[in-house]
Design a protein around this nucleic acid. Structure first.
Length: 429
RNA sequence: GUGGAUGUAGCUCAGCAGGUUAGAGCACCGGAUUGUGGUUCCGGGGGUCGCGGGUUCAAAUCCCGUCAUCCACCCCA
């Protein structure tokens, strides 16, 4: 069998790196200016970490989509399918409830789900994740959402849609689910099989149905946001109020629901056009109670994650210029065998201050300049018998063709003062 | 798990009413130019035509199977 990357995984090639790097730099800047600290959890955890976070009523599908395996010590481990459970496990394990509250943590890295592959959906994918633990205040929700939007804005992404909803408090959810069951009971037989299944297990998820028949049956019913209890309603109104005051544009989506039980109140998603059927860049919500569920103190929290591949896809669709990879400041060309070692040694010394590369075999000057050009170098430095005798290097500015002989001792300085070398008066060929 | 489309050089693709040595552009290497680049010209290397089986005198081309990729459904923490 021809070796290839596993389905749903991809190599991130050198040409891809500038885009990824820029995204992470922007995320880091926006978040850390807001006092968010970086946490890097391990890539795998005891399976129980995710199973407990997911809860008993979680769809079997969720379990099936986890990469779970036994290690040689007989431990049952899972590659993280998301960050929240890992981050909260770390929060509990390190007693972060004693830190100044709220504790704001961000993370980034790969996550794994054994799903079928399509545009924007991979088996190894990458997320940037934020958790704000220890505040139940609506202002925390608003700040989290605003930070998400700020990152996208700073990246230059426009035309994204923030959809804000609420799944209510647990009582609200229970009441709403009961309402759905009652409302749909007479006509349940007309629903598709999946929807009937959902009606049984997690009626709220019916709102995600795409089948036109199902949608017609659901259309006239109240949505979660219409049935909030007073506390959840007040919370939602406060979050919306902050966002309006801060001029963070959003749409109210009364029908946002979540597949997992631990979500409370605020739920939101951010979508972009033009990146296929998987249009959600990311989303998040409040999960009061989850930390306790993981064996920690009963502290509230809110978080979000976005898919790096999806955001990059959206940026590509928006035709935003990708940052270019830079070449070396100097490319040294050895023009005889003895110079091979000399340029390598010289490069080593210059690298204290500049990016310097060199040829590995002797090259005719024409070839050497071509090598330097292809490496994307700003300068080429030629060293052969003449230069050795003089203790100099022929330094050539590739864009202008201006060249002069520079004593080895002055080379580092000459590289840092490009004007001096580009002066036509100094030309000597 | 389901459906559709697509698999030919490193990349993008042509060739496919079966016909003998499988092509182009880009990329790569070398030469023209043995101490001066980018252009140009010339030459070269590189292919299990995804894989397996079948039909045929003959298969990249037709048939079956299989695998992979992409998109969509499903699902979505």
């Amino acid at each position: 069998m021809r070796l290839q990357a596993v389905k749903g995984t991809a190599d991130r090639l050198p040409a891809d790196q500038p885009r990824w790097r820029r995204l992470h730099e922007v995320a880091r800047r926006v978040l850390e200016r807001a006092g968010v600290q970086e946490l890097t959890p391990p890539v795998f955890e005891f399976a129980e970490v995710f199973e407990r976070s997911v809860g008993e009523a979680a769809d079997l599908v969720v379990q099936k989509e986890m990469y779970t395996f036994d290690d040689r010590g007989g431990r049952r481990l899972t590659l993280r399918p998301e960050f929240t459970a890992s981050v909260l496990r770390a929060y509990v394990e390190h007693g972060m409830h004693t830190w100044p509250s709220p504790v704001k943590l961000w993370s980034h890295g790969p996550a794994f789900r054994a799903e079928n592959v399509q545009r924007g959906r991979f088996r190894q994918f990458h997320q940037v994740n934020l958790e704000v633990v220890g505040s139940a205040e609506p202002v925390a929700d608003a700040e989290a959402i605003a930070l998400f939007v700020d990152i996208l804005r700073e990246l230059g992404l426009t035309g994204v849609r923030v959809a804000l909803g609420s799944v209510g408090d647990p009582d609200d959810r229970a009441r709403y689910n009961a309402y759905l069951r009652d409302a749909l009971a007479p006509r349940a037989g007309e629903l598709t099989e999946t929807s009937q299944e959902r009606l049984r297990l997690n009626p709220m998820r019916l709102l995600d149905a795409k089948d036109p028949g199902d949608r017609a049956l659901i259309a006239g019913l109240a949505r979660p946001l219409d049935r909030l209890g007073d506390p959840a309603r007040a919370h939602f109104d406060a979050v919306a109020g902050y966002l309006r005051a801060w001029e963070v544009p959003f749409d109210v989506d009364p029908a946002i629901v979540r597949g997992l039980d631990y979500y409370r109140r605020t739920a939101f998603e951010i979508h972009a056009e033009g990146i296929g059927a998987q249009s959600a860049l990311g989303g998040g919500g409040r999960y009061d109670g989850l930390v306790a569920q993981l064996g920690g103190p009963d502290v509230p929290g809110i978080g979000w994650a976005f898919g790096v591949e999806r955001v990059l896809d959206a940026l590509a669709q928006a035709d935003l210029a990708a940052p270019e990879a830079e070449g070396p400041a100097l490319y040294l060309v050895p023009m005889d065998d003895e110079a091979v070692g000399e340029v390598a040694h010289l490069a080593r010394r210059l690298r204290a201050r500049q990016r310097v590369e060199h040829g590995y075999v002797k090259r005719a000057p024409g070839k050497g300049l071509r090598d330097a050009d292809r490496a994307g170098a700003r300068y080429a430095g030629l060293i052969g018998a003449r230069e050795r005798a003089e203790g100099t290097v022929q330094l050539k500015h590739l864009a202008t063709g201006v060249q002069r002989s520079v004593p080895l001792a002055d080379l580092a300085d000459a590289l840092e003062r490009p004007e001096s070398i580009a002066e036509p008066a100094t030309q000597e060929v």
